[in-house]
Design a protein around this nucleic acid. Structure first.
Length: 457
RNA sequence: GUGGUUGUAGCUCAGUUGGUUAGAGCGCUAGAUUGUGGUUCUAGAGGUCGCCGGUUCGAGACCGGUCUUCCACCCCA
């Protein structure tokens, strides 16, 4: 055998069963997106590098797949840059395009570019693959699908409320009950940073705080110290680490901490409104939970931030995330266009549903009737019936070759086709069809109409 | 990017301190069964032991490199 072909690390082929299950998830998400008034768009797989670079933080830039320029790109590069081996500098000269890293930034670019054609507030959904040059591990791929719903052109908190409901609706439809939707607000985090005098270290501060449930209080403090946040500043955080009580009690103690931060207090008001309103409207099966340590690394979030974690019995990171970004379109030259959105991680949801065995049995669309091929004359007789069945929206097929019957039956068996029709000389003469029900092995003779009636259900 | 881990038949895996011709189960093909799948029985096909190099009289096994798998960190869906 020749050397086996392969696919790049972190990518996957999807076989028919996989595609059927993935479609089931995507169809569920899509129908809810539509129900909430979102419209589909699609954007190119790759963008100009400048569109993507610098939007995801330092770590993000590293994980963006760069596309090499066409032509003899090295000739145009000056020798000094090459000899200095400055990869970053060289990259910007030999690569002008990059694979998209998420769907939000391309969407912001799209909104700015098409601002005169769009009706605002503009609500769009988008389900496409994204690429990250990450090292693969559990639930992490280099090519994966995101399903996003965003609305731009409104800073109404009712959008946040609706997006929480949308999360709840989709997760419930997928039978993913008792998921936790965590909510926080960047303004609260900024307020805390302000109050403790670490405004310039906001990102480092939030990233460290985000790890509280993973590395514990001491770990967080240690990381903050390493990042240059002063000891006295960290001391002021003590109330945060010993956070107790229900949501309103916690919000109260948070208000005390943030009395001197107008921004922080505004964040509290926003979170309070969203949580109270959602609670009063009710959720189907999810829990909405305030988590002040929720940070999310993406630089562009400014208000609410969301994250959905899988049910606790599954070892999996977040299966969705999102938030509000007040100035993402501003980067591309369109001010005062606040946006907020959420994302579903298709591939991780797939893994969770698989592990919890939550896929319905019926996801696979399959051929319903196989006609045995006994020869040309019989095949012609079969094809007439097949056309008729297909007109009635019943998936039917003829075994293409005049193979031994055992082989044709085995084919039906392996494909899990529930019905097999045998039509030879006798059947042609009597204008009937012998139908075999594979599950029971029983056989019966039918007219064409009788055949359709039996096979329909 | 850092650290670890994995790779033997289509699949899941054995393979002793380095020693003749690398095995099993499942699957596959054919037959028992000329108009009947699943169960059974019989026979058969299928391997560059991930790839490249090294040590050795001799390497699937030991050493180096490389690719891949999975995992942790970083970060994230």
């Amino acid at each position: 055998m020749a050397k086996k072909p392969s696919i790049p690390k972190g990518t996957r082929d999807f076989s028919p069963q996989d595609v059927a299950k993935r479609n089931y998830i995507m169809d569920t998400i899509k129908s809810s997106f539509k129900l909430y008034g979102f419209q589909p768009i699609e954007t190119p797989s790759f963008e100009n590098s400048e569109t993507l670079m610098g939007k995801y933080g330092e770590e993000g830039d590293r994980l963006i797949f760069k596309i090499l320029n066409s032509g003899d790109f090295l000739k145009k590069l000056d020798a000094s840059a090459l000899s200095e081996k400055d990869s970053q500098h060289i990259t910007s000269h030999i690569s002008e395009k990059a694979l998209r890293y998420d769907l939000t930034v391309p969407f912001a670019r799209y909104v700015v570019q098409h601002q005169n054609e769009l009706v605002f507030p503009f609500k769009r959904y988008q389900m496409q693959p994204v690429w990250r040059a990450d090292r693969p591990q559990k639930g992490r791929f280099r090519e994966f699908w995101q399903c996003d719903a965003d609305v731009v052109g409104s800073d109404s908190l009712w959008q946040e409320v609706e997006l929480v409901q949308l999360y709840d609706e989709v997760l419930s439809k997928l039978q993913l009950h008792r998921c936790t939707i965590k909510i926080n607000n960047r303004k609260i985090l900024s307020g805390i940073a302000e109050v403790i005098g670490a405004e310039d270290k906001l990102i480092d501060f939030t990233v460290a705080l985000d790890k509280l449930d993973k590395i514990g209080e001491e770990g967080v403090k240690k990381e903050m110290l390493e990042k240059g946040i002063s000891e006295s500043a960290i001391e002021k955080l003590q109330t945060l680490f010993s956070f107790k009580g229900n949501t309103s009690e916690r919000l109260n103690s948070l208000s005390e901490l943030l009395t001197n931060s107008q921004l922080g207090l505004q964040g509290i008001e926003e979170v309070k409104f969203v949580i109270d309103t959602v609670q009063n409207l009710g959720l189907i099966s999810s829990h909405l939970e305030l988590d002040v340590t929720l940070a999310r690394g993406l630089d562009y979030y400014t208000g609410a931030i969301f994250e959905v974690s899988a049910p606790e019995r599954v070892q999996m990171g977040s299966i969705g995330g999102g938030g509000r970004y007040d100035d993402l379109t501003g980067i591309f030259g369109l001010k005062n266009m606040s946006g907020v959105g959420i994302s579903f991680g298709l591939d991780r949801i797939y893994l969770v549903l698989e592990e919890l065995q939550l896929f319905p049995k019926t996801v696979e669309q399959n051929t319903r009737v196989l006609f045995i091929n006994f020869g040309n004359e019989e095949a012609f007789y079969a094809m007439q019936a097949i056309s008729f069945l297909r007109k009635h929206n019943i998936a039917a097929e003829l075994y293409p070759d005049v193979a031994k019957m055992g082989k044709q039956m085995t084919y039906a068996d392996k494909r899990e086709i529930p019905f097999v029709v045998l039509a030879g000389g006798n059947e042609i003469a009597s204008k009937t069809y012998t139908l075999k029900i594979m599950q029971t092995g029983s056989q019966e003779s039918f007219s064409l109409d009788g055949l359709i009636e039996t096979v329909k259900h």
